[in-house]
Amino acid sequence: MELVEAIILAVLAASTPLLLAATGELITERAGVLNLGVEGMMIVGAACGFGGAWLSGSIIVGALCGIVAGALLSLIFALMTLGLAVNQVATGLALTILGIGLSGLIGARFVGEKITPAPHLHIPGLTDIPLVGRILFGEDGFIYLSLALVVAVWWFLYKTRAGLILRAVGDNHVSAHALGYPVLQIRMYAVMFGGACAGLAGAYLPLAYTPFFIPGMTAGRGWIALALVVFASWRPGRLVIGAYLFGAVTILQLHAQGWGVGVPSQLMSALPYLATVIVLVLISRARSGGSTAPAALGTVFVPDR
């Protein structure tokens, strides 16, 4: 049973950067913008997050640096796609290239340095409860933050007027504009929220997961976050399930090897992606042709004057 607890702890940690980045991207996409540059924003967040924490000695400062870096990078994306009506797919890919380069330049001077990782919660009594104590009350702050963020995003999307407007903008920007909502402005905030979350997700890696910075340390997690948003069919609740499922597959595949189970690791790793395609087909089909994707996703909007 202790092994189960340990596996769950590892899964939670492995899923958190995915969940953080995907939550941000979910809001971006709900507003009708497809930003494929998540990986680029994450890796810059990792470099700046580590740099901030190393220079200041504070994990919180590091996390803030990651958030700001991700948001600033996404602002470039917003200016391009919203201000200049440039194609979102091309811009997002260019953003990734830029981000990888920037993070290498920024991070070069921090290579080989080490920080104390983010502390884990410890509530005497509660954390010591066998099996569930550490899972519920012994995580690092980022894990609680990621879950709080999902709840907040859910509440925002479905319980507030602003959330309703955001969804309207993502589903039909022409109507939203006709109703007098500032489509581009709303989208810019959504993009920047996505950037901030991606930056935080990137910063999680050197601040809590492996407390040092190495170029390229996000190792493709940004792309998985993109897949997750689809897998979750743009719903925050399913995002949590999806993120933990992805994390569980990653961790269980390693455990399976330790147990000597001879399944090709590539097949295990491919499952989440195949599952995403199948889920996407199923949900699209259930809606008889109409996809659950925000209808205006990825399309350019230039208001008529």
Partner: peptide, 25 residues
Amino acid sequence: VKIIWANSWFDPGKEADAAKALLDQ
């Protein structure tokens, strides 16, 4: 000995996960 293949020379996150899995086992 328990052996876990990371199938990578270099993926700090995955190496950390592999180490955790080994210790947990």
